[in-house]
């Protein structure tokens, strides 16, 4: 790749899966549609208010590491994940990711409601860039994971939200990413479902996958992650051991 990114070389020579370096993200907030048009015409003036969702965020994620991202709503966790998935561009800074990224951002929102669970396995697979063959090969595992019984061949609009989550996660298990990004997805299921996810994810982690997990629930973070990062209004306020991170997060919450 281009040589004008000096840190790329150092990234190539280490064993990190992700390196986030001084990422900031500013959203321009326009008060009226006219301001947006004015901005296009007078480029050297600002007709918007700046909202900094992330400010100078840096951290590294080692291979095989699971890291939790904690923070209140609007702290910038999801913005960071969207930047890593590639749907949002940072305003400044850079990040490097080694290998394939698998993201579970919103559970099952890619489903076609009138399609059966089986058909949706292919639909969601296509969205996640999983080939039809890969889905076919693992169909038994998807069925096993989803635990929806005869509903597997009925339209997913008849599913309960727990069933949808299990089906979606069953399909995601076909992903064999080097980095798994999970945004609140596991919180929808019941205890048994969480246990199952936990088992599956720890197996993947053992095989060298890394994970970034966003959740509002400290127990979930605690059971999956070794380390955690706490966000507060776009800044990282703590980065380190998961137990301490949860303390910091709880203290922040009680102060609010």
């Amino acid at each position: 790749m281009s040589s004008n990114i000096p840190d790329l070389e150092s990234f190539q020579n280490n064993d990190l899966t992700v390196s986030v370096q001084h990422i900031s993200k500013m959203f321009p907030l326009y008060n009226s549609p006219w301001d947006r048009i004015k901005q296009k015409i007078w480029r050297n003036r600002n007709f918007f208010e700046k909202f900094w969702a992330l400010q100078d965020v840096s951290f590294d994620l080692k291979q095989g590491e699971a890291r939790g991202l904690l923070g209140h709503n609007g702290a910038g966790k999801s913005t960071l994940l969207q930047i890593l998935v590639g749907t949002l561009k940072p305003s400044s800074g850079s990040a490097f990711i080694r290998g394939r990224v698998g993201a579970i951002m919103t559970m099952g929102s890619g489903f076609k409601q009138d399609f059966t669970g089986r058909e949706n396995a292919y639909v969601l697979g296509a969205l996640m860039d999983i080939s039809k063959d890969a889905i076919d090969r693992r169909m038994d595992r998807i069925i096993d994971f989803a635990e929806v019984g005869p509903f597997f061949d009925r339209p997913v609009r008849t599913y309960s939200s727990g069933m949808l989550a299990r089906l979606a996660f069953g399909i995601y298990t076909c992903l064999e990413p080097d980095l798994l990004i999970v945004d609140e997805a596991i919180s929808v299921g019941d205890a048994a479902f969480k246990q199952k996810c936990l088992e599956h994810i720890s197996e993947l982690l053992k095989n060298g996958m890394s994970m970034l997990l966003v959740s509002h629930s400290p127990p979930i973070i605690e059971s999956f992650c070794d380390n955690a990062t706490v966000f507060e209004r776009g800044h990282i306020i703590f980065d380190g051991d998961v137990g301490e991170a949860i303390e910091v997060y709880k203290r922040k919450r009680s102060r609010k």
Binding site: I5, N14, G86, S92, S94, A95, R98
Partner: peptide, 14 residues
Amino acid sequence: MNSQNITVISSKNR
């Protein structure tokens, strides 16, 4: 060290 693809995310590469 390993040959996997590296994704570069940067504010500059428009």
